[in-house]
Design a protein around this nucleic acid. Sequence first.
DNA 1: TAAAATTAAATTGTGTACAATCTTTATGTA
DNA 2: TACATAAAGATTGTACACAATTTAATTTTA
Lengths: 165, 165
Amino acid sequence: MAVLQVFFRCNKRGDGVAAKSSQADKYDCLRLENQLCFPLYACAKEIVRQYKSQLAGLDLTYTQYIAMMVLWEHKSVTVSELGNKLYLDSGTLTPLLKKLEQKGFVTRCRCQEDERSVCVKITEAGEELKEKALEVPGKMCSCVGLSDEEKMCLERILKKIMGRF
Amino acid sequence: MAVLQVFFRCNKRGDGVAAKSSQADKYDCLRLENQLCFPLYACAKEIVRQYKSQLAGLDLTYTQYIAMMVLWEHKSVTVSELGNKLYLDSGTLTPLLKKLEQKGFVTRCRCQEDERSVCVKITEAGEELKEKALEVPGKMCSCVGLSDEEKMCLERILKKIMGRF
DNA sequence: TAAAATTAAATTGTGTACAATCTTTATGTA
DNA sequence: TACATAAAGATTGTACACAATTTAATTTTA
């Protein structure tokens, strides 16, 4: 029973005992409002939506933006290195990088040392985009509106979860 | 400057002052590791991936599962009611509900009172699925591995963010 | 060294997500 | 009542996201 309770929100009475009068309590763990993962999923989607408006002026989607972040820092990475940093595979990255190449922000070519790998390099236009991007984190932060303490707490918990996978 | 700092992780020295020796500090706010939204995005995806293996036996995707949760509780809802609860629009829900109908878990038909609306109703097979789903929340919880305190904290912060949108 | 195994991308197919548009039905108002 | 407006879904188009497969290059090993 304890293992089923873990995803419940706090029992209102705090005693962990289901009320005898309600026959539906067995299914409480399946109520949307008792899920913890659902607000996580909904929140992540909402934040990507907020990024969309912030990033419109840069001609980037959110996924393209985080890929550019890696390139702003590292200048040149292989597709698999990028995938390891972003938790994305080639099925997502290949078409995404082709779009960034079309926009002129990156170049793609097979590595000389290992022809299996593709090197993605940032272009001059990609570097220039970095200046325009400088205002994005601040705008997103005020949009999300957490205190420093809440941000630290959220980061700690999210990284704990990620550490298990 | 303060507004740009908000999405940084804690300054290692704790004084909020950028080191003079590093010329790249201006761009620290654009480093992937200093983002709070990225672990949120990555974590949400990872959890959906974990659900996928838990839900394989139910023949449900994660999005189909949360739609079924609403139906397990309410038996019958319109598409727009479902969309309000799940933060999804008809462009996502229409094809999803057609799939759930094909699997025999729901029926879809125009409401008599208002022909603009579509009523989605759970079927007998959909109700039976509820029994199989009972074990999912517990498995997901142990998979995520947070303490009760961490879960409450995470839920509080996520709902604070959602409350702004 | 030749064959087997591994690795890296690309490709294919399915399923979300969501903005924008379209169609149908219902509602409000002159 | 006619007409404008609004509301509800469906449709269209773009962009992920990822499992599974394929292709090519590299490494391992018998």
